[in-house]
């Protein structure tokens, strides 16, 4: 009689985000567990690859005039803008960290652009990027005059996470940048008061980075012990 040897089930894994960097092919179709014998046979949806490429012109939906106006208003356009992505009806400009303040100034002040409101400053951790610039700060600007939005994305590496602060241009970014610092460790140079805002002041580590554990405890319920969410077996 053979005793089954415990092995990690193929296809199913604990599913912690650090195991799945964005460029991993997660299978075709809507359902699909890579590496297992999934025979559901459904492969109708062709999943698009993550866009690491520029969207070619024309962008459509009025985004051409936005980019042209920015090019006119900001002379150092070519060195500041790394990529322009138009996806799902939204325009994203990938900007080099050094130029972010000037680009924001141009976007806010120029007559054809007039992005008066900085709606949101968010941080994203793209762990596993080939060029190592994993920490992204994402600025969402809203133009009340022209009723449109634009997204600016800035990428820095974790060992040198310095981005100039845009509080000079948009004072509303004050607390939002503090949150990005607290959660991701992005240091905003020139910020009036860059301290932790959500975690206790003496907390160590940056909780929302992908390699920071979720930090749960195993829970016992009716005699069974269930591991915390980041260590459970899951179907991905």
């Amino acid at each position: 009689m053979t005793v089954p040897i415990p092995t990690t089930p193929t296809g199913a894994s604990s599913g912690a985000p650090a195991e799945h960097p964005p460029s991993s092919p997660a299978g075709r179709g809507m359902f699909g567990v890579a590496g297992s014998g999934d025979t559901s046979g459904f492969g109708g949806l062709e999943r698009r690859r993550p866009t690491a490429l520029d969207t070619p012109r024309p962008y459509g939906e009025g985004f051409d005039e936005v980019v042209d106006a920015l090019e006119a208003a900001y002379p150092a356009f070519d060195e500041a803008i790394e990529r322009v992505v138009v996806d799902r009806g939204e325009l994203t400009l990938h900007i080099r960290p050094e130029h972010i303040v000037e680009v924001c100034q141009a976007l806010r002040d120029d007559e054809a652009l007039r992005y008066e409101l900085c709606s949101s400053v968010s941080g994203v951790d793209y762990l596993g990027q080939p060029d190592g610039r994993r920490l992204h700060a994402v600025y969402e600007l809203t133009s009340m005059t022209y009723r449109r939005r634009v997204r600016l994305e800035v990428a820095v590496a974790a060992d040198e996470p310095h981005i100039p602060s845009v509080t000079r241009v948009y004072p509303t970014a004050d607390w939002q940048e503090r949150e990005a610092y607290d959660m991701f460790g992005i240091v905003f140079d020139g910020h009036p008061n860059l301290t932790r805002i959500l975690m206790p002041d003496d907390w160590e580590g940056f909780p929302q980075r992908k390699d920071y554990p979720l930090g749960g405890v195993p829970v016992e319920y009716k005699g069974v012990e269930i591991p915390p969410p980041d260590q459970r077996r899951s179907y991905q």
């Binding site: 909780p207 920071y212 554990p213 930090g215 405890v217 829970v219 915390p228 969410p229």
Partner: peptide
């Protein structure tokens, strides 16, 4: 009582 649905770093369980 037990940390609820938030079994994570930020909430006392």
């Amino acid at each position: 009582s037990s940390g609820g649905m938030f079994n994570n770093y930020a909430i006392v369980q």
